[in-house]
């Protein structure tokens, strides 16, 4: 699980172009949206694509994303439970 969390942090920083943010700056329970990392709605769509591309998870209802993408902890837990690859 720790390796997955590290992987998710690296993906978010690299793919969502977070400047001046390091893996160590993101706590596992930090909010990813709003006052946390400040991700926006386009970032949320990128995360949905990432779930499909990297882990074979298709979110049929984008509203599910609100709970899944709350933090690195919630993302890792959801991926661990639902991953197809």
């Amino acid at each position: 699980m720790d390796a997955l969390k590290q992987e998710l942090k690296e993906f978010i920083i690299e793919q969502l172009n977070l400047e001046d943010v390091n893996v160590e700056d993101i706590a596992n329970d930090d909010p990813l949206f709003g006052d946390g990392l400040g991700l926006d709605s386009i970032d949320a769509l990128e995360l949905i694509v990432m779930l499909d591309k990297n882990y074979g998870i298709k979110l049929t209802d984008p509203k599910q994303g609100r709970a899944i993408f709350e933090s690195i902890d919630t993302m890792a837990a959801y991926i661990t439970e639902h991953r197809a690859n």
């Binding site: 386009i42 769509l45 990128e46």
Partner: peptide
């Protein structure tokens, strides 16, 4: 086939 929303916009 994985279009990137961040690119598409």
């Amino acid at each position: 086939y994985y279009p990137s929303p961040a690119v598409f916009v």
